[in-house]
């Protein structure tokens, strides 16, 4: 029992600039779909369209099936810049998203304890964001997303603001989280290593206006992928071939086309 997302002929414009053209895509329950593409291809825009933060120019975003009944916020974002309230503690940042659903006191504490344990933050409940490292901040953001029990996690380059080592560690954490309890996610990244490591399906977008160039599936179970794994490496090289020209062409365009 779960909720799929279907994109049906999405087109989008910013003013006169066409950013997305005719995107149709299925996001099945329990899978991580990675969106990759050159910078400016509209992958973050597509994510905001899925999450309802922007309205598509044409086409529809459809939810297929009902979200789990205990899901407080079926479509939940994890942002690149963490978006933690600096004036609230770790605990306070998580309770922020529960308060509006009338969850307070004991129930709230139980949820907070659970998600903090799952993200290995139990000891830092009372710390302020300014005291945390980048990786910890993003784990708080992930814990906050888990707290509302989302049907689909919308992750917008969640690791891009972190250094390489932290990124590796956090990828391990995400894999562990998914293995324990599979979740549905749309994962936007420009980093092919992340896509190959975390994605069941990798959607390659062309440069602007973004169209679906290719959909690559990786069958190796997520928990078993390792760095240097030949299958993964082949997929990585394939993706790079697909992206190289697009990235170069995109790089030579003026920002405003």
């Amino acid at each position: 029992m779960g909720m799929d997302i279907r994109l049906d002929g999405i087109c989008h414009f910013y003013g006169d600039t066409e950013v997305l053209r005719d995107i149709s895509l299925e996001i099945p329950t329990g899978q991580i779909v990675c969106l990759v593409g050159p910078s400016g291809c509209g992958k973050s825009t597509l994510l905001r369209l899925i999450g309802g933060l922007e309205r598509p120019g044409s086409g529809r975003v459809l939810q297929l099936g009902a979200p789990p009944s205990n899901s407080l916020n079926p479509l939940t974002f994890v942002f690149q810049d963490f978006a933690l309230l600096p004036w609230r503690t770790v605990k306070g940042n998580i309770s922020l998203v529960l308060e509006d659903h009338g969850i307070r006191g004991k129930r709230s504490k139980a949820i907070i304890d659970d998600v903090l344990t799952r993200t290995k933050l139990a000891d830092f409940a009372d710390a302020l964001p300014k005291q945390l490292s980048g990786g910890m901040k993003q784990r708080v953001a992930i814990a906050r997303a888990l707290a509302v029990n989302p049907a689909v996690m919308l992750m917008d380059e969640p690791l891009s603001a972190l250094d390489a080592q932290t990124r590796e560690l956090l990828m391990d954490d995400l894999v562990a989280l998914w293995t324990r309890q599979p979740f549905t996610a749309v994962y936007v990244t420009h980093n092919l290593a992340e896509a190959v490591r975390l994605g069941h399906t990798i959607v390659v977008l062309s440069r602007r206006p973004g169209r679906i160039r290719e959909i690559v599936s990786i069958d190796t179970p997520i928990g078993e992928r390792r760095a240097g794994d030949p299958v993964c490496q082949r997929k990585h090289d394939l993706l790079w071939e697909l992206l190289r020209e697009e990235a170069r062409a995109a790089d030579e365009e003026l920002i405003d086309g």
């Binding site: 933060l53 942002f79 810049d81």
Partner: peptide
């Protein structure tokens, strides 16, 4: 981005003003 975060978690307008805009 904090306001967008609030919206993405479905916080009410009043909650966003009181808990995000005013302290910010």
């Amino acid at each position: 981005s904090l306001i967008r975060m609030g919206q993405s978690f479905g916080l009410s307008w009043f909650s966003i003003v009181r808990k995000i805009v005013l302290p910010g």
